[in-house]
Simulated assay, not measured.
Amino acid sequence: MTDHDASDAPREVPTEAPDLPPALHARVAGRTWHRNLVGEAGAHVHRLHRPDAPALYLKHGDGDAASAIADEFTRLQWFADRWPVPRIEHFEWSDGAAWLLTRALPGRTAYEWLADDPARAAAVVASLGRLLRDLHALPVDTCPFNANHRLHLDLARQRLEAGLIDAGDFDDARQGWTPQQVWEALGAMLPLAEDRVVSHGDFSLDNILMNGDGEVVGVIDLGRAGIADRYRDLAILANCLDEFGPTLRDMLFSAYGIAEPDLSKLDFHLLLDECF
């Protein structure tokens, strides 16, 4: 699933501050608020601005969204000394809701660079491939988070039974499919031989920030990070790159170091991603 529709606008809108826990309210006083509309996935995301201070992002929600935010908090702590991720400014759990405040990273998203400057596509994709290769080189035995396909198949089944899979949000290749058809197609591709790496889990163009030199300066939205098959990340990123031309995925695999990608694994992980 991609984060962009045909119009791709707007990405954020001005808004008022929500009701905040007291400690958090004091922390963000005097800032202007913008509601982020890209990839919220059940949580509310705001950008907080003040001229004399670094920008901040606040992610908050209750129910399943609160659990996902807490997952992201623990993963940001683990990644802090290992990968370029946002600095945590504040976290709390209050009355069943989670609130995660982070410092904004510099740069623009990889999606924005590709959309605004297509001539730089090759350099951007090469940088993304190197970054993902470095992530997947982290020692697996040091990561405490499980994100393998068996876990996510179980979560997908629960979502299917609860009627939570949105067929209207499927990729173009599966428009007209039902959630049951996606589930059956997944089952037909098992068993999956997993090549275990430290995986981001939602390695899309909107979650990667780059500077004007084309280098990655940070990665966001790590709530689904953990040990999983390497094609989990490759599939999502390759699928995003297809929006900008049919040759970019080949550039990605080359930069990552894969001569012949496993097409079956790419398909499996894209099918699994449709369930979330």
Score class of each variant (00 low, 15 high):
103 R>Q: 15
105 L>S: 10
239 N>P: 03
85 V>W: 01
221 D>V: 02
6 A>E: 13
224 R>N: 10
267 D>Y: 01
90 H>E: 08
134 D>C: 13
235 A>S: 14
16 E>W: 00
145 F>Q: 05
182 V>I: 15
131 L>V: 14
78 W>I: 09
161 E>V: 00
215 E>K: 10
29 A>E: 14
86 P>H: 07
192 L>Y: 01
162 A>L: 09
237 L>W: 05
58 L>Y: 03
149 H>N: 08
3 D>E: 14
120 R>Y: 06
152 H>F: 14
143 C>D: 12
152 H>W: 15
76 L>M: 11
16 E>L: 13
218 G>R: 10
205 L>M: 07
144 P>Q: 09
230 R>W: 01
70 A>Y: 08
134 D>G: 07
132 L>I: 08
131 L>F: 12
134 D>W: 00
232 R>M: 08
154 D>W: 01
77 Q>C: 11
57 Y>D: 08
149 H>F: 07
163 G>T: 07
160 L>V: 08
182 V>W: 03
116 D>P: 02
80 A>Y: 09
154 D>G: 00
83 W>M: 13
241 L>N: 06
139 P>G: 06
22 P>D: 12
249 R>H: 14
84 P>T: 13
226 G>R: 04
190 L>R: 13
233 D>W: 04
124 V>K: 04
186 L>Y: 07
73 F>K: 09
175 Q>D: 13
192 L>I: 15
88 I>L: 06
41 A>P: 00
180 Q>H: 13
126 A>H: 11
91 F>K: 10
187 G>C: 11
189 M>W: 03
112 E>S: 12
100 L>Q: 02
39 G>C: 08
165 I>V: 13
45 V>T: 15
97 A>R: 15
225 A>G: 11
72 E>S: 06
247 T>F: 04
178 T>K: 05
115 A>I: 07
25 H>A: 15
33 W>L: 09
91 F>G: 06
84 P>Y: 11
80 A>L: 05
227 I>F: 02
96 G>V: 09
25 H>C: 03
49 H>L: 15
207 N>K: 06
